[in-house]
């Protein structure tokens, strides 16, 4: 490999990987508890849900869009799934399968609304999903009577604590989803269209493609990942609540942006998103172990987000010079 190619890689995913590695190294050196098996397993658990949502968010942001509604939609999905799973008229296995389907379907329906409305009337997704944020929150409070559901079957709850050699099942699900999404983006016609539209929508339309379909599809995918994340959330915390998910959209967007995906679309990858989610998780965890308070940690996360975007402008400049 020539130096240019190496430099190019460093400026992309490899660079984010190095930052993550450096962070881990730093924390391991100064906080002995950080590198313990138990703590690492904790970090995996903590970043799983954000990673899953960020996968869908990456699809939307690659198209130059944004989805602010994921937090409320997640709450809606948990309540609908929670109501299904606690239905005593259903046999246990059917109830569990059905709750997963209900959760994903609810997420996808919200995504379809977001995508369809913003495409049909050419409204920026920022506004439409801001509306959906409120619609879904209102709906879930209405449906649940603002009550939390936590009487899930113990068989269901048990799945949430399964782990293989210290790697929690829900993290495995998140990583498999990242790999599957990465495959879609990099190897399929669908993925190619996502990148192409994000770069130059008009050129893609004039090349004879149905751009609207792909833009709506990205929101539906995002909704599906939210539906999946809702199930993982219930597995992990054994509750379904109408008030959860506040600010989840910001963590997901942060993971995507730190992972190097451009807010204007067309550039980025899911491997970057996974690393971005990991950086946020490691920082939160490590700084907590160091003894930093909640408020200070939030500030640090904010600084990291801005730094990532600033770095992104340099990255674009430098990689253009290299080629």
């Amino acid at each position: 490999m020539d130096t240019k190619k190496i430099a190019y890689l460093l400026l992309n995913e490899a660079g984010i990987g190095i930052v993550l590695f450096a962070l881990c190294l730093l924390f391991s050196l100064f906080v002995p508890a950080f590198a313990s098996m138990n703590n690492i397993s904790n970090i995996f658990t903590q970043i799983s849900i954000n990673t899953v949502i960020a996968v869908g968010m990456t699809f939307v942001i690659l198209l130059g869009g944004i989805d602010l509604s994921v937090g409320s939609v997640l709450a809606l999905c948990t309540i609908l799934a929670g109501l299904t799973i606690t239905k005593e008229s259903l046999p246990l296995s059917a109830a569990i399968v059905l709750s997963v389907i209900v959760s994903m379907a609810a997420g996808m329906a919200c995504g379809l609304f977001n995508g369809w409305v913003s495409e049909r009337w050419k409204i920026h997704p920022f506004v439409v999903t801001l509306g959906m944020l409120n619609i879904a929150r209102g709906a879930v409070l209405q449906v649940s009577n603002s009550r939390t559901i936590y009487s899930f079957p113990k068989e269901f709850n048990a799945v949430g604590t399964v782990s293989y050699f210290g790697i929690p099942l829900i993290f495995v699900v998140a990583v498999l989803l990242v790999l599957f999404g990465h495959f879609i983006l990099k190897k399929t016609v669908f993925g190619r269209m996502i990148y192409a539209i994000g770069n130059n929508e008009e050129a893609v339309r004039l090349s004879g493609h149905n751009v609207k379909f792909y833009k709506v599809a990205a929101f539906v995918i995002c909704g599906a990942t939210v539906g999946l994340a809702a199930i993982l959330y219930m597995l992990r915390l054994n509750i379904a609540s109408p008030i959860l998910g506040n600010g989840f959209e910001l963590s997901a967007i942060a993971a995507v942006v730190i992972g190097g995906t451009s807010m204007s679309g067309g550039k980025g990858s899911l491997i970057g998103t996974l690393l971005g989610a990991a950086i946020i998780g490691v920082l939160n965890n490590g700084l907590l172990l160091v003894g930093m308070g909640d408020f200070a940690r939030q500030m640090v996360t904010g600084i990291i987000i801005v730094a990532a975007v600033v770095l992104d402008t340099y990255r674009a400049k430098v990689s253009r010079m290299l080629i």
């Binding site: 190619r192 770069n199 008009e202 050129a203």
Partner: peptide, 16 residues
């Protein structure tokens, strides 16, 4: 602005 995707490779543009 309408024919090419400037930030994609030549081969991706040819097969667009």
């Amino acid at each position: 602005s309408q024919g090419l995707i400037l930030d994609m490779q030549v081969d991706s543009n040819v097969s667009l």
